[in-house]
Design a protein around this nucleic acid. Structure first.
Length: 446
RNA sequence: UCCUGGCUAGCUCAAUCGGCAGAGCGCGCGGCUGUUAACCGCUAGGUUCGAGGUUCAAGUCCUCGGCCAGGAGCCA
């Protein structure tokens, strides 16, 4: 008997097939028993009629505990009543083998759980439909990201996870002993290494875990997350924005194409995602600042009004980002941030040294920053001056300064937070659901 | 680090002014041929986060501590 994947079930209507999986839920009605079976690719309802099966087998099915592992054989039939993902098809059970009868005290109910309990049981919570759906979307986001970059001439580079002192200060780094060399730190970015890589490969990216020891306790932060960082030679800020919008558009469109059942299960409004097509609106920091002043004047809730307080020169906080993105249906680029609030390596705006050629991409519906990038300083003297101004150790940046001595070119790059993109596309409340085993300030277990 | 909220059955939550510790789900038993987190009946299940205090009486009030969440700052 052919073993099929539940995600393909519609292709097998009328045929006998076998599914290998786990009992997600059981509902019995006397002489009739419904098993919702998941196999990793989807959830399918399997129906047992007492009259069709040997009495012992029917009795065994009636008593199967949640999460028992099973191999089910039966006939696929189309039925609008059948629940599941994708749903609409069910399996009339002809035979069932129990691989293991699960213990009766499985802790995850199909009802809501508190955050703490759910996270303590993350290894089991992963099996729930909602979590399965989000993580399937995440995998597609990552695949689509690589697909776009690989077909557009980018070379994947792996940048080190263990790094010497910091690109941007050590306060937010995880520290570890490194033999006789003193301290090493878990990478919070691969950017500086990718700036070296472009001079050999032109267009590169790294895509891996990255670590921030920030004591951030919000729905947008993880201490360990997966960041994509493309870096491109001969690329200015405008060209960088084009790359970002093309890539994001590709990711969203592929997610819609392949993960609509998951998005529908999550209750996501797919029409909103279908609208995500390049080009994206671009507004300067200056214009965003004016917009914020106007939005604050219109705001009637005094609490929100206080949070929207804003003076030119400060970086946007989460409330500011939310207010701006709510004005747009697509992700929006905000470019030209004040130099003072951005990293030392960002190219100054021509004729306006108080702002720099930086750009953040803010996702709509209040999801906030998903990408942050900039054109990098290409002039060796200016870069050295910046390192001195910021009291960074020149010795540590010797190799980085070399990059500007030998064939320096205008170049740009950005970082994209995989889990933030996933959270946005899924319409999920909290970023912790967008990675299998989230690491937050309060949690390193399981 | 700061602000706010929470901690009661395995889970999610109730408990009025300080006055008998409750429900739903899940587990167990029984019933039902179309359930959608099924439904109906029955059973079991409690150190109310910890320590101290006030009181005739504390889940509830007070003090200290612990843990968790949401938000701010910082960031992708």
């Amino acid at each position: 008997m052919a073993i099929i994947r539940v995600s393909d079930i519609s292709k097998y209507a009328g045929q006998d097939i076998t599914v290998q999986g786990w009992v997600y839920n059981r509902t019995d009605k006397g002489k009739l028993c419904f098993l919702l079976v998941r196999d990793g690719t989807g959830f399918v309802q399997c129906v047992a009629f007492k009259g069709d099966l040997a009495p012992e087998l029917f009795e065994q099915i009636m008593r199967l505990p949640q999460e028992s592992s099973v191999i089910v054989t039966g006939a696929v039939r189309e039925d609008k009543r059948a629940p599941g993902i994708p749903g609409g098809f069910e399996l009339g059970i002809k035979d069932l083998k129990v691989v293991q009868t699960a213990e009766a005290d499985y802790p995850m109910a199909l009802k809501d759980h508190g955050v703490d309990f759910a996270l303590d049981n993350r290894h089991l919570w992963l099996r729930m439909q909602s979590q399965w759906a989000v993580l399937r979307v995440r995998a597609t986001v990552m695949a689509a990201t690589r697909e776009w970059l690989d077909t557009n001439g980018f070379v994947e580079m792996s940048t080190p996870i263990l790094t010497p002192a910091a690109a941007e200060g050590t306060t937010t780094l995880f520290e570890t002993e490194y033999f006789d060399e003193g301290k090493a730190y878990l990478a919070q970015t691969g950017q500086l290494y990718n700036e070296a890589n472009i001079f050999s490969f032109g267009k590169v990216y790294c895509f891996g875990p990255t670590f921030r020891a920030e004591k951030s306790k919000t729905r947008r932060h993880l201490t360990e997350f997966w960041m994509l960082e493309p870096e491109i030679a001969f690329c200015d800020l405008d060209q960088l924005m084009e790359i970002e919008e093309q890539m994001i558009t590709h990711i969203v469109q592929r997610v819609i194409r392949e993960r609509t059942p998951e998005l529908k299960f999550l209750g996501r409004d797919i029409a909103k995602l279908e609208a995500i097509q390049a080009p994206f609106p671009r507004i300067s920091y200056d214009d965003a600042a004016k917009m914020l002043v106007e939005l604050r004047e219109k705001e009637t809730d005094p609490e929100k009004k206080e949070l929207l307080k804003f003076d030119w020169g400060i970086d946007f906080g989460a409330p500011h980002e939310t207010a701006i993105t709510q004005q747009f249906e697509k992700p929006v680029f905000v470019y030209g941030y004040p130099t003072a609030v951005k990293a030392f390596y960002m190219e100054p705006w021509p004729g306006r040294p108080e702002v720099c050629k930086s750009v953040d991409l803010l996702a709509p519906e209040g999801y906030g920053e998903i990408c942050g990038g900039s054109e990098r300083i290409s002039d060796p003297d200016l870069l050295l001056k910046r390192i001195h101004d910021q009291n960074l150790p020149e010795e540590a940046f010797k190799w980085y300064l070399d990059l500007r001595k030998f064939g320096s070119v205008p170049h740009s790059g950005f970082g994209m937070g995989t889990e933030r993109v996933t959270t946005w596309l899924c319409g999920t409340e909290h970023i912790r659901e967008a990675i299998a085993f989230p690491r937050t300030i309060k949690r390193v277990y399981p």
